[in-house]
Design a protein around this nucleic acid. Structure first.
Lengths: 195, 195
DNA sequence: TTTTGTTGATTGATGCGTCAATAAAAAATA
DNA sequence: TATTTTTTATTGACGCATCAATCAACAAAA
C-alpha cells in the first residue's frame, strides 16, 4: 500500500526505533534488522533511506542533540538573571525529556563510538562546547573569568558523571537528586565567592 | 618451542594485549585474533586459556580493577589525616598508572558493556561501592554524615565525568588539572563547613 | 606415554549492504 | 478521459565478509 510522501515519516520512525533499540540493548550493537523491525519496515528500506548503518546512527545522534538544543533554548529564554541561567542549563539536562534510561544509554554508547568515528566525535564536541559556553554565559556574570571557567568545567563534568552513574543504576537514583548535587555545588561555590 | 609453566605468562600477555587493543580501538569491538596477535600467539590459544571471549574481557576488567585497588591501598596507607585520605583517593584515580588513554578508553567501553553483561555490572558496582566508602572514610571525619555522603557522591561523579571528558580529548587536558578541579571543589566544601 | 603448549584449518552463525522485482501513485501523453 | 510512462515505496533473497569457537594434529617436556 505505497503512498507518496513517506520518506520523512519513515526517517522519523527509524530514528525513534534506533533510540529505543539502543536504549534497550544498552549499546550500539543493534542490527539494522532489529531497528527496521521496530519501525515496522524491512531492513532494506532502512538502507534505502539512510545508506549505511553509520549514517543512521549519526542521524540519530544528531536528532538527540537537536532535541537537547531546542530544550536548552526554551529554558534559557525564560531565565532572567545570570544565576537562573546556570540553573536552567543544569535542569534541562535532567528534565523528563532528557533523563530517560534510553536516552542516557544512547549517550553513553555514542560517547564510546565517538572514539572510532570522527564524524560522531565532531558532533559531540560541538555539544560540549555549547554546554560550556551556555554555563559560562551565566557564570561569567557572577564570578571572575578564570573562576567561572573552572566552575563551568566542573559542572559539565558533574553532569556527565551523574549520567554515567545513572546508566549503571548505581549511586544517584533520580533526576531531582542529581540536580540537588549540582545545585549544592554551585550554591557553595557562588555564595562563597560573592561574600 | 613449548615449555612448561607458560599458562600464567600467556594469561598476563593476553590481558595486556586486550587492554592495549581496546585502548587503541576505543571499544570492546576487538577480535580475538587481534588480541592474540598482539600477545604473539594464535587465537586458538586465547580460547584455550580463557574459553569464551567474554571471559577474557571479564578477566581484563578484573585485572584493571585489581591494579586500581592495589594502588588505592598503597595510597591510603601513607595518608594520616582524614583530609589526606580524601585527597589520596582522588589522586590515585589520576595517577600516571591509571590515567592512561588506553585505560580510560577501556573503562568507558566496559561501562557500556556492563549494560549487557550482568557479571561486568556486578564488578563495576563493587568498584563503585568501594570508591564511595573510601571517600566516605575520609569525609566522615570532617563533615556531618548526610553532608559527607553527598560530597562523596559528587566527588565520585566528578571523577567519572572527568574521565569521560578525557576520553573525548575535550575539556580537561591533563591529570593535574583534573585533580585541581576536584580539590577545588573539596576545599570549598570542607573549609566552608569547617568554619 | 602422559601432560602441557600450540596452531592451521574449518565450521557455523551473524549481519551489512545490494539487487531485482513488485506495486501503487503521479505525471505525461494521446 | 483513457493510456502509457515515470517516479516513489517497498521487500525477499542473496552475496560476501567477518569472527567466535572447535578440533584434529603436532611438538616438546615430564
Amino acid at each position: 500500500m505505497p503512498k507518496v510522501g513517506m520518506e520523512p515519516l519513515r526517517r522519523k520512525a527509524l530514528i525513534d526505533a534506533t533510540i529505543s533499540a539502543i536504549g534497550e540493548r544498552g549499546s550500539l550493537d543493534v542490527t539494522m534488522s532489529e531497528i527496521a523491525g521496530r519501525a515496522g519496515v524491512s531492513s532494506a528500506l532502512a538502507h534505502h533511506y539512510f545508506g549505511a548503518k553509520d549514517e543512521l546512527l549519526l542521524a540519530t545522534m544528531r536528532h538527540i542533540l537537536a532535541e537537547l538544543t531546542a530544550d536548552m533554548r526554551r529554558a534559557l529564554r525564560s531565565a532572567t538573571t545570570a544565576r537562573e541561567r546556570v540553573s536552567a542549563v543544569v535542569a534541562v539536562n535532567f528534565s523528563d525529556a532528557q533523563f530517560q534510561p534510553e536516552t542516557i544509554a544512547a549517550w553513553l554508547a555514542f560517547y564510546v563510538e565517538a572514539q572510532k568515528s570522527a564524524a560522531l566525535r565532531r558532533l559531540l564536541r560541538v555539544y560540549a562546547r555549547r554546554l560550556h559556553s551556555n554555563l559560562l554565559s551565566g557564570l561569567a556574570g557572577i564570578l571572575p573569568r578564570s573562576e567561572a571557567d573552572r566552575v563551568a568545567e566542573a559542572t559539565a563534568a558533574l553532569i556527565d558523571g551523574l549520567y554515567i552513574r545513572r546508566a549503571l543504576k548505581d549511586g544517584v537514583p533520580n533526576a531531582a537528586t542529581a540536580i540537588a548535587v549540582i545545585e549544592d555545588y554551585l550554591e557553595t561555590k557562588l555564595s562563597r565567592s560573592a561574600q
